[in-house]
């Protein structure tokens, strides 16, 4: 049986997010027998050429949806346009890479086309001919398995969760490109501009070691402990989880994660970080991950190489003292 899929890519000023390749890989993995019919939708201001190029490179069908207001990701306009495309194509799966805007598209579409929607999918398995999707809950402390009762489902896929690559099948047919040019305007939602807020300070990206503070530090004063630990390494920088930055304990320039900086140092030293998907998106490619957390069930331990189950307040001073001892008596 042919299963049809609609995959929706994201573009900013006509530049496609490279994660569309991951999306194709995920799409292909849904039906590994190769009987996939994939339609990749590329919304943007001027993306027809791009859609043609991707169709040829990957031998898939693409659909360029063009409108001036699609120069930035525009969930509002897309939720108006997509239901008609979906009704025409009748896909079993409608998939996007996960972020807050694709969640918005997924949730709005779910209402518009009355189809179930599962956001933040990390893995899936087939149970009794039904797809069962696994995703994080409770800040990663628990995982939930979710299934749906219909033949059509909208998914957002966590970046990095599916490593399967997409191999174009050149035996079937040539990828074709269609284009829809939208004329109607939505005066109730007007994109204005994109602002870069991240600091140009590259210390975090260039450090061999990132010592990172999570809410496990409990008090602002303990940032000093983190600084002390960072000082034992020859090339270290200090990072933090979003909530530590929200509390003002570290500047946002230090924030690591989906909405902050993405780092891949030789060593990532996670101190009191629970390890939500939003945080690990910014550090899971690190060479070696060492995690200290007093909660043995903290999700950070599911991606760490070395784990220490201890209270930071008592453990970090011991670590610093032992280091000083070693320096004095090498």
């Amino acid at each position: 049986m042919h299963k049809k899929q609609i995959l929706i890519a994201e573009t900013v000023e006509n530049q496609i997010s490279p994660s569309y390749k991951e999306l194709l890989g995920f799409g292909a993995s849904l039906h590994p027998d190769g009987e996939n019919k994939i339609l990749l939708i590329i919304p943007g201001q001027n993306v027809e050429k791009l859609a043609e190029q991707i169709a040829i490179e990957n031998n898939i069908h693409t659909l360029a949806i063009e409108h001036e207001d699609l120069r930035y990701p525009n969930p509002h306009l897309l939720q108006k346009i997509l239901p008609e495309v979906i009704r025409k194509y009748m896909p079993s799966y409608i998939c996007m890479m996960h972020n807050v805007r694709t969640c918005q598209i997924a949730a709005s579409l779910s209402i518009q086309i009355d189809a179930p929607c599962i956001t933040g999918v990390e893995s899936y398995e087939i149970q009794k001919e039904k797809s069962v999707f696994t995703r994080m809950m409770f800040n990663g402390k628990l995982i939930g398995k979710t299934a749906c009762k219909t033949d059509q489902v909208i998914l957002t896929i966590i970046p990095g969760a599916f490593s399967g690559s997409f191999t174009p099948d050149h035996t079937i047919q040539h990828g074709k490109t269609e284009i829809i040019k939208i004329n109607e305007t939505a005066s109730e939602y007007k994109p204005v501009r994109i602002i870069e807020t991240i600091s140009k300070d590259n210390r975090l990206e260039e450090a061999d070691v990132v010592v990172s503070a999570g809410m496990g530090i409990e008090k602002e004063e303990r940032i000093d402990l983190i600084r002390k630990i960072a000082s034992i390494f020859s090339n270290a920088a200090i990072g933090g989880s979003r909530i530590v930055c929200d509390h003002g304990w570290l500047p946002y320039a230090c924030q690591i994660g989906e909405t902050g900086k993405q780092v891949s140092p030789k060593l990532y030293f996670a101190c009191g970080i629970s390890g939500t998907m939003q945080h690990t998106a910014g550090m899971k490619k690190s060479g070696c991950i060492v995690a200290i957390n007093k909660d043995p069930n903290a999700p950070i331990f599911s991606i760490a190489d070395y784990g220490v189950v201890e209270d930071l307040q008592s453990f970090l001073p011991i670590l610093a003292a032992r280091y000083d001892d070693r320096k004095k008596n090498p």
Partner: peptide, 9 residues
Amino acid sequence: MESGKVEEV
């Protein structure tokens, strides 16, 4: 948005 970008709408 991701990676320190902000969209004004």
